[in-house]
Design a protein around this nucleic acid. Sequence first.
DNA 1: TATATGTGAGACAAGTATGTCTCATAAAAT
DNA 2: ATTTTATGAGACATACTTGTCTCACATATA
Lengths: 189, 189
Amino acid sequence: MLLRDKRAVKSRSALIEAGLAELPVNPTASLTEIAEIAGIGRATLYRHFASREALVEEILAVSFDDLVNALMPMENENLRGKKAMLRAVELMMPLANKLRFLSTFWVEGERVLSKDPRYAMMENETILAIEQAKEDGDIRKDMPTRWVMNTYDMLIFTAWDMNARGEASIEEVTRLLATTFFEGVSPKS
Amino acid sequence: MLLRDKRAVKSRSALIEAGLAELPVNPTASLTEIAEIAGIGRATLYRHFASREALVEEILAVSFDDLVNALMPMENENLRGKKAMLRAVELMMPLANKLRFLSTFWVEGERVLSKDPRYAMMENETILAIEQAKEDGDIRKDMPTRWVMNTYDMLIFTAWDMNARGEASIEEVTRLLATTFFEGVSPKS
DNA sequence: TATATGTGAGACAAGTATGTCTCATAAAAT
DNA sequence: ATTTTATGAGACATACTTGTCTCACATATA
């Protein structure tokens, strides 16, 4: 199954798409269900993925690809600290559905997530930006970086969720997130 | 099984304790596992709880009891808006370990959670406090109440989680939460 | 002490998920 | 046109989970 054949490519992507759509909604979905959603025979699923875990890992890898891809523009922008964090939010917001998969496997799959070296990489970049923002006077030095990062991640998930429920547009949640994160919910004094 | 017998009371609470400890870590734990953790025979588990769902519901009910109990002191304090929100955080934070169960079942169990009338009640009280805070000039009027509430809830879970991992004390996460929520992560200007 | 009741161990049935395998068929590759 | 390869359908074995039931035993209760 070396993806030289059109059919194999199609089957594979159909399976990944199905998992990406179904697993966040129903994390314990059986492989029979996923194969059915993909419109692919269950046996074929096993031809592409040796096990359930292999499928999940592959979907995670694809999600990371999209995420890293979305953040690509930043490579040439040389932003740091607060500006980098805001720009990242802006670029990540439209990827809501992909992030959703990642957030579903945040708890259960922390060991799965951390298998991907890019996970640690992205975490490190976030930490770096937070520490730069502290130096620049944009984030309080007395707040643990870990707390700031958790808050940042959590706000991203919250923002996506609200957008997915149709309660606010991408632009709106981006603005809300930025304001809430840096200024809090209080009016400017 | 009317809990007239010491043994029944002990078994029941051991099972609830086990579920409370294990399910947040491993949401798909089998009843065999939970019974083993409780040190109770699996048959006895079924004598107390008709089904898996019944066990989960009971644990949720117990969690709500604790939560409502913890917030009891506010009944006589007549706080409103920002002060009510801060006081609620202060009272809820020490319940971290116990109430992590609720956050685990936040997504999956939203239908389970909303079975409990106290869920809607607490939600309404939060909404009321947020709207009071808006009137009082403590929360921006241009922020949707829904967004503010989601942020508030998520910060509570984040704080619980950080405390549960031993990364910060109760007092610390309480302070971090309050500051982050109302002022944001930026230093005071 | 005598009775009532909760319990543990284990058998049991039914349902479901995982993973392997075969074979005929259809569609790609050459 | 011929060969190669992926697929679908389904059988099959294995294992696990849920939920029920029985029986001997231990422990509350009276």
